[in-house]
Design a protein around this nucleic acid. Structure first.
Lengths: 342, 342
DNA sequence: TTGTACGCGTTATCAG
DNA sequence: CTGATAACGCGTACAA
């Protein structure tokens, strides 16, 4: 940032006022051909690039949006982030991405940061470990901002949300397992209390009930690969020789499914011959495991896109039909090789 | 962004001047205990959060840095991004991440965008497909900014760079294969012309030469999973029954190694029994393939951290010892199960 | 220790 | 179609 070329420099050299320069940069069509040329030339000559930062003061808009996700390192979010970025870019917005690490405190911290940066809106994936309701302070902050939620809701706020039909997805997953002849299906659960997990669990239970299967069992592994891996390793001895032993496992997400896969490989339990595994998310690389993972696909890139579209409308105060404010997207069953037919 | 509470509001209600409020926010120690309390109270009362955007004008610093990477969706970069974010956060900086998609045009476009946003500096992973030198326009833009490069260099500019010893890494990989008894080792190459690829290729060649092995063969797959997959599938028939058939493949990165793995699984070629595979990068999930991938680890998170540290010094004009301006980090051999001993 | 006054780079309003 | 001029919200010499 060594040198500085401002709108004044251009104005002076081109022999016009700063307003004219501003017009040439922002709405060239309303300035006379001749002056426009003249200004355009000196702009090129000085290689003048306007200071967006300064512009956003009188404009009262930064053209930034904030994106709060649990962890960018979690591959589930990469496509979502990209979806957000791509749509933003198209509309002249930039994205400020931060990681909450599923922590309530960090989430609050970043909310404040984003507000202080005066982003025009924020897309928020509510932290999983948030047990308490939102403190009043954060809540009033949220009300001051344009917010679109992804995946997880906030109790007591009617905020637009983009999500996937988790219930239906889980239901179809378990139904599929049943169709493949499985009766003993274990649910490898995500973070308890999370709306996402609860819905998937309901889908699991519902499919079981419909098929009049009373056998049910759950193991909790908080959506993480290593936890799932350890749980399986740890519980295997007592599972192995009891009637507790399932023939199939439905994991609440792919990370856990892959963790389970890893555990079984180590335990010399063949998948899917001895144990079937089904995931949820269809993350990248879920087709590169051995065997490739059968799973429920979530349109993450699309979710990112949709979230931005709604947010931009919110920012532009365009009244959105209430029906179109929130969106629920559908999942898709991806058949690969980790589930066998009994 | 509905309401607005400015430094004026606080000043008026607290009965002080705006400068005092400013002082309380930025250097409280220089204001009298009593007034500090008074101001702090009304700040809390109004829940005043300063407008960083506005502050950055007189401060002549935005506390933003830009990060240009090829694609955030490429898992190789996730840890790097996180490393950058974490260090930035600690120093009060925010990160603006953009994707060049390895395209020269986009790279130029974003460079301009970042400049117009007046970020205090940028961390840049030069686009792979950049064949031409940087055009004059971009070059002069680069000179106006604080830049730290990652991984790939720019000809004709002495810019700080954080990289890995690609030569040594590749050398040790191939040497390891040789130690394991392999003599016919194929190199699955990345983007040609890339410094990164060239260095890894040199490492490959050098290890071969040292062991007096004249057999060498390369396939080019531009660092991507699907290209590698297709190349293997496509070339397999002619490889299979010739003396061209290697016993081991050294892929220029893990993505390609995994692509090859996938291809061999489909071709019913057992890894590592019939074919050994070695990767480079140690990306997440490289331990979740079957078999787990033997590879060369790159400290990506650390690279991100180091890059920011150098950049911040650059920004603060702290004269850095020239020797510490650039950093070359070491790789590490990760033995897993995709290479067998002959 | 505190207040005044100006500057930061741009846009918007309103005359001309 | 163009040019003054007043914001925008804050930091900071300088003065008191």
């Amino acid at each position: 940032m060594k040198k500085k070329c401002t709108i004044y420099d251009v104005a002076k050299i081109a022999g016009v006022s700063t307003s004219t320069v501003s017009r040439v940069m922002n709405s060239p069509e309303i300035v006379a051909e001749e002056t426009r040329q003249k200004v355009a030339n000196t702009v090129k000559e000085l290689s003048y690039i306007p200071n967006m930062m300064a512009a956003s003061m009188p404009r009262r808009r930064t053209n930034y949006i904030g994106l709060i996700i649990p962890d960018i390192t979690n591959i589930f979010f990469s496509n979502l982030v990209r979806g957000v970025q791509d749509v933003c870019e198209k509309h002249g917005y930039s994205v400020l991405v931060v990681n909450s690490d599923d922590s309530q405190e960090k989430e609050g911290h970043y909310l404040k940061l984003l507000y202080s940066r005066r982003v025009d809106g924020v897309i928020l994936t509510v932290a999983g470990y948030r047990e308490k309701e939102f403190p009043e302070e954060e809540l009033s902050l949220l009300k001051k901002m344009n917010i679109v939620l992804i995946d997880r809701e906030i109790n007591g706020m009617t905020t637009p949300i983009v999500k996937v039909n988790n219930f239906a997805g889980a239901y179809s997953a378990v139904k599929y397992l049943i169709t493949m002849g499985h009766r003993k299906i274990m649910y490898l659960a995500g973070i308890e209390g999370t709306r996402t997990n609860t819905e998937r669990e309901k889908g699991y239970l519902s499919a079981l009930k419909e098929a009049r299967i009373s056998w049910e069992k759950e193991l909790t592994a908080d959506f993480r690969l290593d936890t799932a891996y350890q749980k399986i390793i740890h519980h295997w001895p007592q599972l192995k020789n009891s009637d507790e032993l399932p023939t199939a496992i439905f994991a609440a997400n792919d990370l856990m499914a892959i963790g389970a896969l890893k555990a079984f490989t180590q335990l010399k339990v063949r998948v899917p011959e001895e144990m079937s595994i089904m995931g949820f998310d269809n993350i990248p690389f879920s087709d590169c495991t051995y065997p490739p993972l059968t799973t429920i696909a979530q349109p993450t890139y699309l979710m990112g896109q949709k979230a931005v579209e709604i947010l931009l409308k919110l920012i532009d105060k365009k009244k959105i039909k209430n029906s179109k404010k929130s969106i629920e997207l559908e999942t898709e069953l991806i058949q690969r090789d980790s589930v066998r037919k009994i």
